[in-house]
Amino acid sequence: MYPSRIDQWVVWGLRFLGVASCALVGLILLFLVADSIPALRTLGDRLIHDDSWHPSEHATDGTFGMLPIVIGSLTVTLGSILIAAPLGLASAIFCHFYAPPMLAGFYRRMVELLAGIPSVVFGFWGLAVLAPMISTLLRPPGHSMLAGILVVALMILPTIALISETALAAVPRSHIAGAAALGMGRWSIIRSIVLPSARAGIFTAMILGIARAVGETMAVVMVCGNIVRVPGSVFDSVRTLTANIALEMGYSVGMHRSALFVSGLLLLFTAIALTTIIGIVEHRSKDREGGAHV
């Protein structure tokens, strides 16, 4: 396949390194599973059924009910995606169809910068500014699910906006020009032509946004209050899976540590599942395009 002998050596060397970099996924899975096994084996469904989270080194001393934490993760993710999805998509539409060229470039760069701001800075802002504000304006304690949702929404907005815009840009100009020639207005072109054609890409953007929201740690730790319970309202404190790991991993031992690895494993599987969904969507949209050409 390769013309020269050096190439044969080089390609095997490269393959080795390439395999090493993707074996990483396997390695991560291996170590997470290995450290999860004690908890999975001894605790089993106690991880769901125990009525509280008071973990300890030995299975017999503590309670290991992770359900409220899982629900905390789900609600924060759901809330933030509900806010960030329309805002992110609108940002992308603004950039691509409404803003004058200069402003669009400026706006895009700003969103890119926003994407690069460390989560710890978002969290710090949430802690120092947003949570106190919620506490005084709306309802104490301020360190709440609402604060978490807002900060996480802000953090995943750039991801959604940037990827959606790529999808919008990929819509063939001829489609748009054709619609414009029929006398359609800007918004109706966007709604009836652009958004349907960019559907797959926008969906991918949302899934990636969800993936980021589920995995977000620092900002959530800093603003959510971290009390383990099923939240009754958005003003209640809440603890997510990621926050739980960040808070307790440092001192956990034995069964407690293992239970934390189970939650890590859960996060890893979520990431794999979301990536698989994206893969399927991309595959299908590619098939459809391929079909159109034949």
Partner: peptide, 18 residues
């Protein structure tokens, strides 16, 4: 690589620790 890119950083932390 896609999976790796989607893994939350805290999970990398767990892995790194272990």
């Amino acid at each position: 690589l896609d999976v790796l890119a989607a893994v939350p950083s805290i999970v990398f932390g767990l892995f790194g620790n272990a």
